[in-house]
């Protein structure tokens, strides 16, 4: 516990706020969600291509919101937060990715196939 002597309003994390960045990220966020939405509901592309668009725009949005909203960069103020996030990303990817991988062919390998072809489970 320490005694805060300086004016807390001058704290670098308070001073991070940038109105123009916030608005810019807002506009880009709407474009990057609205754009893929339009493509998807209009079926403008094969599902595979559209999927790539969705993934790419989600990735781009992550960067945009991370940088311009959360202001994650390598400055003195923010670098530990950025580092922590960067360290967590592989864990998130592993949790989801490895799980998806191990279950991808599981139903086909175990007893589920008979069920899968049963009429009740078909489309």
């Amino acid at each position: 516990m320490s005694i805060e002597t300086r004016d807390p309003l001058q704290h670098p994390e308070v001073q991070l706020a940038r109105g123009r960045h916030y608005v810019g990220a807002y506009v880009v966020s709407l474009l990057l969600t609205g754009g893929p939405l339009w493509l998807v509901v209009r079926h403008l592309g094969t599902p595979r291509r559209l999927m790539i668009v969705v993934i790419a725009s989600a990735a781009a949005l992550t960067l945009v919101q991370g940088y311009f909203w959360l202001r994650l960069d390598f400055s003195r103020t923010q670098r530990w937060m950025t580092a922590a996030l960067v360290l967590f990303i592989p864990l998130v990817v592993m949790t989801i990715g490895l799980t998806a991988w191990m279950f991808a062919t599981l139903y086909a390998r175990t007893m589920i196939p008979t069920l899968m072809h049963a009429p009740a489970f078909g489309h």
Binding site: V40, V54, L61, G66, L70
Partner: peptide
């Protein structure tokens, strides 16, 4: 602020991988 902005982060993925991806099929 961190909390509130973070919900935007999470929503990106919910929107992309639940709503958009769901509508793809």
């Amino acid at each position: 602020k961190l909390f509130w902005f973070f919900q935007g982060f999470v929503w990106i993925y919910v929107f992309s991988f639940v709503y958009l991806t769901g509508a793809l099929h």
